[in-house]
Design a protein around this nucleic acid. Sequence first.
DNA 1: TCTACTAGGTTGATTTTTTGAACTTAGTGT
DNA 2: ACACTAAGTTCAAAAAATCAACCTAGTAGA
Lengths: 150, 150
Amino acid sequence: MKENYKLPCNIAQTLNIVGDRWTLLILHEILVGASTFNEIKKGLTGISSNLLSDRLKYLEQSELVSVSLYSEHPPRYSYSLTESGKELEPVFHSLLIWGRNNLDKCYKKLVHEACNHEVEQTFYCAHCDTSVEEEDLVVLPVEEEVSSRA
Amino acid sequence: MKENYKLPCNIAQTLNIVGDRWTLLILHEILVGASTFNEIKKGLTGISSNLLSDRLKYLEQSELVSVSLYSEHPPRYSYSLTESGKELEPVFHSLLIWGRNNLDKCYKKLVHEACNHEVEQTFYCAHCDTSVEEEDLVVLPVEEEVSSRA
DNA sequence: TCTACTAGGTTGATTTTTTGAACTTAGTGT
DNA sequence: ACACTAAGTTCAAAAAATCAACCTAGTAGA
């Protein structure tokens, strides 16, 4: 396995998997419905076949994408996201919202289906059953889960 | 300006700014407190001086980072995030949470400071004053804001 | 049957990015 | 005077991405 960033940080390690050029966009394309090689390629103007092919292989190996052969003769493949892949949705949403608020030209917005109004991101603490603001969050080291169970 | 991805998509356009190798990690490093060139460089094992220098210039030009000369003689600069830069915090949080749930080896977790329990991401609709689940969200095109004000 | 076309890629050359190491300039500390 | 730090710059080499052409297998039409 390649090891781009050698930093003891979730973000760096996550970016080692999804941070390469085109990778997040490929995953997003599959998330929004593209399922065959050419559908993905058509959705991503400018990507080359060999790169898409390489990335799909890497993503399959990383278990973010699963591939199924839906026709043996001729061979036809269908790409879909695994659970891990689907869990990237909040990442896409946060990038979309950032773009909405900060890009000169933005294309999409994220709305509450029921009322058609735009939403914000927040955090929820299941333990306190309350919503938590950015400023009440802390990033803590994970120490092999010793103390958190005691 | 460079134009990597030519796609009509917030995510692609956002990644045109922050999607280059090392860029998100540089922003994150500044977010968590690094302020001088060498502090940033020390936090990011493996980055080379010229790349860090290039990225900082690009980020300044993109108005995600602001630079101030805090000593004229010798010249010493201090880097900090602009409002746009700080708004990337939810992106970092969502990457951190993804890593927490999906990496083999993870280093950090995001907790509610008051109770020390981990939080989840949700969305909040100000109009309905309610929290909205992933499945009740839709991505809609932004059309020069004609209909949404009427 | 011949031709064109689609899906799903592979191959190889060229170009662009990154890395890596050395060097610079200006000042500090001993 | 000498070593050392901050904040970079310069240039060569290596790695990654782009681009265009090619390939295999099948399908559709004339």
